[in-house]
Amino acid sequence: MNIFRLAGDMTHLLSIIVLLLKIQATKSCAGVSLKTQELYAVVFVTRYLDLFYSFISLYNTVMKIIFLLTAFTIIWYMRKHKVVCQTYDKEQDTFRVLFLIVPCFVLALLVNHEMSVTEVLWTFSIYLEAVAILPQLVLLQRTKNVDNLTGNYIFMLGSYRALYLVNWVYRYFTELGYRQWIVWVSGTVQTCVYLDFFYYYVQAWRNNERMKLPG
């Protein structure tokens, strides 16, 4: 494992910790999209089915379990915690997730490495992760004002993807015959989804003001 990959994973982990801390400390999930969190849960469940039949490393297994547990913890807070769930912007968080899930699934059936249940589901999770942040970005666009923690959460998620891109470039030059087109193309799409957000995030940071999205 190279340093970019490790940094990417740590940024991903940190983004989740930031989100959980925001929810726990402020007892509020205002500005957080439950749809995006549920999509991530679907992504992790369909991708990490290999926990049952393969072992890569202790690091790999532990990280997978952490991602799964934290995803469901966040969902639990947003749906069941009696204080937090009242701060959820249900009326604003109306993205139709089936418009993401169905095309990703059809694409996974058409473009995959092997026509098996676990392989198609794994491919589906790669495609779905690329677009899972969209409900969150739409919610931000609607509520306009972005609180610091939510902004940092999305910024870290985007950074994690950018670091994965660098990791792939590094691996391409250091590992003989290393190619993975499905992951590369989806990962590039996924990183591009964040570009607009990055622009406004950096602008707010440079001007030392609270982040605002244009209408």
């Binding site: 290999d50 790999n60 997978k64 490495h113 993975q180």
Partner: peptide
């Protein structure tokens, strides 16, 4: 059964 390279990524 050999895992593909990318399967070691999260």
């Amino acid at each position: 059964f050999k895992l593909r390279e990318d399967k070691d990524e999260l």
